[in-house]
Structure formats: structure tokens, C-alpha cells
């Protein structure tokens, strides 16, 4: 909690992990608050379900807690965290038939995503339907990417990670990340604008 006197707002992620290793639960809470939005958004995009993202958010921090002692202080915490989350998401994705599930943000039979209906943001109903339809199209296009390409795109575009960080998170060489990103972006561009081809 931000009001916890034991945790300073300016503590780096790595400093918080060090404190966590020392058995300070306040550091855990601070890390979880810090990554509440970004990590949940990442998992939500990978899994297509907010509830499953909730579960994996918790599981990710259970791993962080268990393996805090193994964390290499010379490295950055963020890719390590995403690495854990990606592996958990991959396991979950493989163990369940996610392809058959209907995620909240995928268009239903009427073309309207449940999320857009629930969120009830401003604008005309037609706008919401168009937005959710567009979101569903993007999601479908991203889903068509190979598994690691999908994670790389989400990490790169939505989470703002650098190539080096993605390489660390996905445990692949930087060159592979670059080629996968390039291929993924090209495929996405074609999938989302089939009438126009990139030169």
C-alpha cells in the first residue's frame, strides 16, 4: 500500500526485490501495485480473459516471491517479471483450450464485444460497436501470429519493452526478436489492411 511507511515510492524494482528477499511483505505489495496495470494488461491480451489474467497476476507474483533469492541483481526486474508471466501464460494457454473460449473482448455474434458494452464509455452506440469490432479484428489478427511472435508484439507495442528486454523475457537472442517483430508487424499490416500491401 502506498501509505506503508516501510516502502519508499522511489525505490527501484530491483531494490524492492532485494527487500522482498529479506522477507519484507511491504515490498511485495509495492511491486504488485506498480505492475498492477501493465502486467494485468499483458496477461489479458495474451489470454483474452480478465479473470484468467487476475489468476496469473497472482501466480506470477507467487513465483517472484519464491524465486526472489535467485534474481540476478545485475539484471533488470521488468523483463524477468514478464518472462515469468509469459511462461505461466504459455503453460495455461497450452493446458486449456483457449482457442475455443470466448474472451470478453472478442466480438460476439452481433459484432459487439462484451467489454465495450460493460465499460460503457462515452460516445454513440455505433462508435462503441465499431471500436469493439476493430478491437476484435486486431485481436484475431494477433492471435493468428505464432505464439512467440504474439508475445513479442504485445511486449513491444503494448508494454513498451525494448528489444533487449524482450529477448530476456522470451529467452531468445536479440536478433531473433528483431526478425520476429518484423515478420509479425508485416503480417499484421497485411491482415489488417488486406487491400494494401506494404512494399
Amino acid at each position: 500500500m502506498s501509505s506503508d511507511p516501510g516502502v519508499r515510492a522511489g525505490d527501484s524494482d530491483e531494490a524492492l526485490v532485494a527487500r522482498l528477499e529479506g522477507g519484507d511483505p511491504a515490498a511485495l505489495r509495492q511491486l504488485m501495485e506498480r505492475y498492477r496495470g501493465p502486467l494485468h494488461g499483458y496477461l489479458c491480451r495474451l489470454l483474452g480473459s480478465s479473470d484468467d489474467a487476475d489468476d496469473l497476476f497472482q501466480d506470477t507474483f507467487v513465483r517472484v516471491l519464491r524465486h526472489a533469492a535467485r534474481f540476478d541483481r545485475g539484471r533488470s526486474f521488468r523483463p524477468w517479471l514478464y518472462s515469468i508471466a509469459t511462461n505461466l501464460a504459455r503453460n495455461t494457454f497450452r493446458s486449456r483450450s483457449y482457442r475455443d473460449a470466448v474472451p470478453l473482448d472478442r466480438p460476439d455474434e452481433d459484432g459487439c464485444a462484451l467489454v465495450a458494452q460493460l465499460a460503457g464509455r462515452g460516445g454513440a452506440p455505433g462508435d462503441a460497436a465499431e471500436r469493439s469490432e476493430a478491437a476484435g479484428v486486431v485481436r484475431a489478427a494477433v492471435d493468428e501470429l505464432p505464439e512467440k511472435g504474439r508475445a513479442a508484439v504485445v511486449l513491444f507495442y503494448y508494454q513498451g519493452l525494448s528489444y533487449d528486454e524482450i529477448a530476456e523475457a522470451l529467452e531468445i537472442p536479440v536478433g531473433t526478436v528483431k526478425s520476429r517483430m518484423h515478420n509479425a508487424m508485416t503480417r499484421l499490416a497485411r491482415a489488417l489492411a488486406p487491400q494494401e500491401e506494404l512494399p
Binding site: 504488485m32 494485468h40 494488461g41 489479458c44 497472482q58 473482448d105 478491437a135 479484428v137 503494448y158 499490416a189
Partner: peptide, 22 residues
């Protein structure tokens, strides 16, 4: 154009009590 498309893919914000629940 692709950026515009990708920006359309929004996800619901996490629950307020996500951390507490976790």
C-alpha cells in the same frame, strides 16, 4: 495505419482490488 489499428485493441482495466485479492 497499423498503429491506429493496434491502438483499437484495448483491454479492461484491472479491478481496483486486484492486489488485495492476489
Amino acid at each position: 495505419a497499423l498503429r491506429g489499428d493496434l491502438d483499437a485493441w484495448t483491454v479492461p482495466p484491472p479491478r481496483d482490488d486486484l492486489v488485495e485479492r492476489a
